[in-house]
Each structure stands twice: as structure tokens, then as C-alpha cells.
Design a binder for these strands. Structure first.
Lengths: 231, 231
DNA sequence: CGGACTTTTGAAGTAATTCAAGGGGAGTGG
DNA sequence: CCACTCCCCTTGAATTACTTCAAAAGTCCG
């Protein structure tokens, strides 16, 4: 296995920020690599949390399934992001299922290894705290949206969030760089695929988005922002 | 100022767990006390996060107000709970307004002081991580409920959560020990006060709850659990 | 080219909001 | 102590946003 230090170190920013450079190699030494093809499952809801990962390249989708079988997408995870931060918070089991939506590379540490590393580099604990704080805020924002906004607005926020987190600027607009179906958007925005389809169709007609089979491009961000802000 | 060690130390459990007993006094030394009357505001959304608190006695309500003036209740905070954990996660501003709903005692530390304490007692960082993890999970549960459940079920979950977190067992049932209006429940469950009123009226008729002006008692928990589980 | 998956669109149905009005309790001030 | 006022709660009726049901068309892959 070839080690690509630059790649790995840049990706591990979310955890290693503020740690002396000479320690990076040591932190890296305790890690392992993992590669997933599209639709491969990294961890499954309910599994014991035995490792923590950082996405190096690719994207994953974290989903929760309810007792009666309904799915909710917790979030998409891209390069540099932490998978399973709750393991550091002392949670025994994974709260969601994480699936690759693209070819994906990750670096991982066993929970024990990471605990040992944190013992030597307390700054990492703060970085984990900050990462978890960001997730908490995001989740709280979603609660607020689901509680107070109508579907169009929520969907606009959802698409804009995806665009901000993972979007790629192209000639046609901001493209979501992984397959994203109407059903996926529905599970993110708390609605049905039918409503998503109707809403996207309307936006398409107005030239706000350009979308197709599992594909979304934001062509008029300002107008989408206007919808998100309440028309 | 009289120091009441037992009281303070018990309350600070969420942060001090796993820290050597002899250090508790030292941690306590850097703290200050704060007392609030009903409706007093502890921190306001947008304010710089200059301190972190633990509730000693009483209850507070954390709310977020949207740009267009709608309110969402983030959660109620009771004894032993952390106020403003995001300050430890490096957030500069408070994301919500925290108001006392009862006479309330807190102990607090300035952010700088707490950072210094954590430097000496890294276990506290883990406790903060665990506390934030719990909040994150709770928030995520709410997202799931708002995305997939109808109002009755969501409201049942909301009431049960309040009962589990702060409820007091009395002869008549589990009582929510602070004033809680229909509007408050609506802002917790993501609905309107009208719908909450109708639903509670129905439950009252069935003998599931006993409620009145800003007052809720769960009289038949099993049946409320049944509703939360989907009838 | 066949078949599975995704999307679209219409129509019917419904849960919940909005609109509207009235009633009751608690606290205050006369 | 009573009456007034404010706040909170209740309930009906109208409306609407969204889901559910249903069917067909499109798109990709093998």
C-alpha cells in the first residue's frame, strides 16, 4: 500500500488542525486506509462503533431508518469530513448507516488508537468538539426549517446546503457532484419524491435549476436563495 | 458568598465525571454563581459566548428566532445540564436565547477560565464531547420525527421527552414541573397551538393527560407511548 | 432491445393550518 | 373582595398545502 502523505494530511484537517506538523506522521502511522465502491456500506446503524474515519476522496451518505422502515438522510459526507464523530463522544453504537455514493477513499483509526492519539495530542479533542458542534448546529438548523418552513423553502435550503458543501462550479452552474435522486432530496427535506419532482419541474421551467435522472445543477443561485429566504 | 460544595459538585457531574475528587474544589474555585428569576434572560441569541454554565436548580428554555420572527424551542434545560456547550466547541456567538422558566441557580465559568481548566483536566473535554454528542443525537431524533411523523405522534414524543427529562412522579401522574403553554408545545413539536390544543383535549378525554393553563401531567404513560409508537 | 429504475403528471383525499370568535383563570387594582 | 383585564385555551368552519393513489413516459444498463 502506497502512502500519499500530502493527500492524507490535507484531508485530516478537520481533526489535526493545530497539531504540530512533526506529529502528523505519527498520527498517520496508526491509521489504516479503506476504499469503497459506489453503494458499498462503511458502517451500519446499530453496529458497534469500532473506528473513526476521515473522508479523503469521494462522498458518502448517512441515513437513519425508523422502526417502521422510513428513511431519513442525515447528511452527505465529503472530503475532509469526519465519519462517526459520536464514537469519540463515547457512543457505543453507530446511529446511522453510511454508504458510499461514489468511489471513496478514507483513512481510519480504531477507537482505541484514536483515544491514545488524543491522549498525546489534546488539540484533537478540541477539533472533534468543533466538528461535532458544527454538526449539531446544522441539525438544529434543519429542525428549525422543518418546524417553520413550507416545502419549497425547505427544499431550496436543502439544495443550497448541498451546493455549498459539495457543489462544483461548472459552466452551467453549481453541480452536485454525486447521484442525487428525487427520493434522496425528499428524505433530506422531509417530504415525498412527488412533491420534490413537482417543485424541481417548476424550478426547471423558471431556469433556476437544471436537473435530470439523479442529477441536479443550480443554474440561478440568487433566485434559489430568494426562495429559501421566503420568496 | 457561601459555597455549598455538595450542591455544586453534584450539579457539575455532566462535566466533572472522571475527574479526581481532589480537583473538584479547584475547578469550583474558578467558577461564579448566577441566580435568575422567572423570565430572566441568561444569554441572548447572537451574543458573544463568554461563559459556560451548569444548571444547579431550576429550569431554562433555549429558543431560536427565525429571520421572520417565528420561534422554535430548542430544548428545556434542567439541573446538571450544560448551557452553551458550543462555546467549548469554539463557537463565537450563542445560537439561541436562554430564559429561566423558574427560579434558577447556575454555576458558570468564563470561557477562558474553562479553557484553562480543561488544559489541566483533559477528561473534561471528553465529558463536553459526550454532552454535545447527546444533544446532537437528540436533535437528530427530532429531525427524524419532523420528517416522518404526523403531529399527534410528534407531540406524544415531545411530551414523553419532557416527562423523561424533567418529569416528577406525583399521585396523579408524571408532572412537567414548569409552566408549559400550548404555544410552547407547538414550538417544540413543530405545529400550531391550535393543533396542540385539539390534540391535548382529545387526550384529556381519553384520560391520557391532565392539563390546564400552562400545566401538563401525563396520567397514562403506556398509552402515550403507544401513540408515539404509531397507534 | 428488454427490463428495471427514475421521473412526471393528473386526480382524489386528507391532515393540518388559518381564520374567527368566544370562554375561562389568574392576577391586579380599585 | 369584587371587577376588570390580560393571557391562555377551546372549538367550529373554511381553506390549503401536501400526500396518497394511479398510470404513463423517460432513461440508463446490460
Amino acid at each position: 500500500m502506497t502512502i500519499v502523505p500530502d493527500f492524507g494530511l490535507r484531508a485530516s484537517c478537520e481533526l489535526c488542525r493545530g497539531v504540530a506538523c512533526e506529529s502528523h506522521a505519527e498520527i498517520h502511522a496508526g491509521s489504516f486506509r479503506r476504499r469503497l465502491a459506489t453503494n458499498d456500506v462503511l458502517v451500519r446503524q446499530g453496529d458497534t462503533a469500532e473506528a473513526i474515519y476521515i473522508v479523503v476522496a469521494g462522498q458518502l451518505r448517512a441515513t437513519q431508518t425508523t422502526a417502521d422502515g422510513q428513511q431519513v438522510i442525515v447528511r452527505y459526507l465529503g472530503p475532509g469530513e469526519l465519519v462517526g464523530p459520536l464514537a469519540l463522544a463515547g457512543e457505543a453504537a453507530h446511529s446511522d448507516t453510511v454508504t458510499a455514493v461514489n468511489d471513496t477513499h478514507l483513512i481510519g483509526w480504531s477507537s482505541a488508537e484514536m483515544r491514545a492519539i488524543i491522549g498525546r495530542h489534546p488539540a484533537i479533542a478540541f477539533n472533534a468538539l468543533a466538528a461535532l458542534g458544527r454538526r449539531y448546529r446544522e441539525s438544529q438548523t434543519r429542525v428549525q426549517e422543518l418546524s417553520t418552513e413550507k416545502v419549497d423553502r425547505r427544499l431550496a435550503h436543502t439544495v443550497l446546503r448541498l451546493a455549498a458543501q459539495s457543489g462544483r462550479r461548472t459552466a452551467r452552474g453549481i453541480e452536485i457532484p454525486f447521484p442525487l435522486s428525487r427520493q434522496d432530496l425528499a428524505e433530506l427535506a422531509g417530504t415525498t419524491l412527488h412533491t420534490v419532482s413537482r417543485t424541481l419541474s417548476a424550478w426547471e421551467t423558471s431556469g433556476i435549476v437544471d436537473s435530470g435522472r439523479r442529477r441536479v445543477i443550480v443554474t440561478d443561485e440568487p433566485r434559489l436563495l430568494a426562495i429559501a429566504g421566503g420568496d
